[in-house]
Design a protein around this nucleic acid. Structure first.
Lengths: 119, 119
DNA sequence: ATATGAACAGACTGTTCATTT
DNA sequence: AAATGAACAGTCTGTTCATAT
């Protein structure tokens, strides 16, 4: 494993864990949240990335999915999928976040060093 | 162009430009320098990355190559390739560094935000 | 073993297509 | 149009192979 800067997938997963801590949401809601989050930085997450991140958290046993039918006024029934922590999910999520934190700090240190060394 | 964190190729090119500003060197010398630089961060640049970065700087007209024969005591003649700025190379290099600086600062801001938002 | 380079493979991310309501 | 998902394509990086001294 060669380390450079933190991968975007890891960062998205950290945000998703934090969001799931607060509120049970579904895919496109997370997408919109995260697009708002990164708007000032010119980074626009793609929907496939969010879904892949959610799928990973699911297969890693951090969260589980519940299908629900969204009954809207006009439209019919649209199936949406909510995510929440499994029994051990919260702890697993915290562990993952801690690991990524170390990686983020290392990345920040690298960037600081690059700026210091070259400018 | 979607922006997330700065790519390692860009960072290596910035370091190479800075190194070429100071001293005319050849490929594996840059590699060793950069391995020392990133040693504390667990990142070990690969030789192919350095060569690709040098090739890019060459085809972008920032540097040019000069072949020299290294006559060592025991060994025979090993051809090595030195890099130095073209006529407009220094300026081009500075321009590139400025562009990457903006990107590095944005990346640092993103990482700071991720740390602030999730921990 | 040092030095350079290219070919190939794998990982990561983005774009497009498919399906349903 | 909103929502989910998968397939496919492109890019970036790492590993391996080739060549020469």
């Amino acid at each position: 494993m060669n380390h450079f800067l933190t991968k975007q997938r890891a960062i998205l997963k950290v945000y998703l864990i934090s969001l799931i801590e607060r509120k049970k949401m579904y895919g496109l809601q997370y997408l919109n949240e995260l697009r708002e989050t990164f708007k000032p930085y010119g980074y626009v997450p793609k929907h496939s990335e969010i879904y892949k991140a959610l799928h990973e958290l699911t297969s890693e046993g951090v969260v589980y999915r519940t299908r629900k039918l969204r009954s809207e006024d006009k439209e019919g029934f649209q199936e949406i999928i909510y995510y929440q922590f499994t029994e051990k999910g919260y702890e697993k999520g915290q562990l993952y976040k801690r690991q990524v934190k170390t990686d983020l700090e290392r990345s920040r240190d690298i960037i600081e060093k690059v700026l210091k060394d070259n400018y």
